[in-house]
Simulated assay, not measured.
Amino acid sequence: MELDAFKETVVSLRERLLHISLRLIENEADAEDVVQEVFLKLWQMRDALDQYRSVEALAVTMTKNLTLDKIKLRKPQGDEQDLLRIETETRNPALLLEQQDAVACIRRLIEQLPNLQQTIIRMKDVEGYELAEIADITGTQIEAVRSNLSRARKKVREHYLAIHTYNHYENR
């Protein structure tokens, strides 16, 4: 693919790719980095792009995958902490500690889920996205999102209850 064709086909997708990445990662600088990385990868494989039925679909898939990789490497951000923060003014310190342990345990359990389930449960339960928005962003059917969300919640619940029950009996 020549430079002019590349600009017309790939570079024209910049806003769409940026929007997709930004919806997932919620950090403009990181989203820009992802889009630039996608452009570099596409440029490096420009001679093979004609073999793809839809360069746009390839670019969107690459953007989603690279964004999800970037999210996976991130540590929990302040926004997630704020959403899970427990008010301390009116709480019993022992109860507060127990709740903080529960939040940390649930966070660890979510991190053990498959990537797609991790992303979906975070987008729905932490960030508040609607199922249709999640389906659009992840490129899956709404029923698949609903099913993955249900499985993710069930796994987290089962593992949390197993840990909680085990700890309860061990402390007796």
Rank of each mutant, 00 (worst) to 15 (best):
M1N: 05
E2M: 07
D4Q: 15
A5N: 13
F6K: 08
K7I: 06
S12V: 12
S12A: 15
L13Y: 01
R14D: 13
R14N: 13
L17A: 10
L17M: 15
I20F: 08
R23P: 08
R23G: 04
L24H: 06
L24Q: 10
I25E: 07
E26V: 05
N27S: 09
N27C: 06
D30W: 03
D33S: 12
D33T: 07
E37G: 06
F39Y: 13
L40I: 14
W43G: 05
Q44C: 06
R46N: 13
R46E: 04
L49M: 06
S54H: 13
A57R: 11
A57P: 05
A59W: 08
T61N: 13
M62T: 05
K64L: 10
K64W: 12
N65T: 12
N65Q: 14
L66K: 15
L68M: 15
D69H: 15
L73I: 02
Q77I: 10
Q77V: 13
E80R: 01
Q81V: 10
D82L: 12
D82E: 06
L84V: 00
R85A: 15
R85I: 04
R85G: 07
T88C: 08
E89A: 12
E89P: 02
T90S: 12
R91T: 14
N92M: 03
N92Y: 01
N92G: 03
P93Q: 07
A94T: 11
L95F: 06
Q99D: 15
D101G: 01
A102F: 01
A102D: 08
A102L: 04
A102G: 06
I106K: 12
R107G: 03
R108N: 08
E111P: 00
E111I: 00
L113S: 04
P114W: 03
Q117M: 14
Q117E: 14
Q117D: 10
Q118H: 05
Q118T: 03
I120A: 09
I121T: 14
M123W: 02
D125M: 11
D125T: 11
E127I: 00
Y129L: 15
E130N: 10
E130V: 07
L131I: 07
E133Q: 09
E133S: 12
I134L: 05
I134H: 02
A135F: 11
I137W: 11
I137F: 11
I137L: 14
G139Y: 11
Q141R: 00
E143W: 02
V145F: 08
L149D: 07
L149C: 09
L149Y: 10
S150C: 11
S150P: 13
R151L: 05
R151M: 06
A152W: 01
K154N: 12
K154D: 07
K155A: 11
K155I: 13
V156Y: 03
V156F: 10
R157I: 00
I163S: 05
Y166R: 01
N167Q: 13
E170Q: 10
R172I: 09
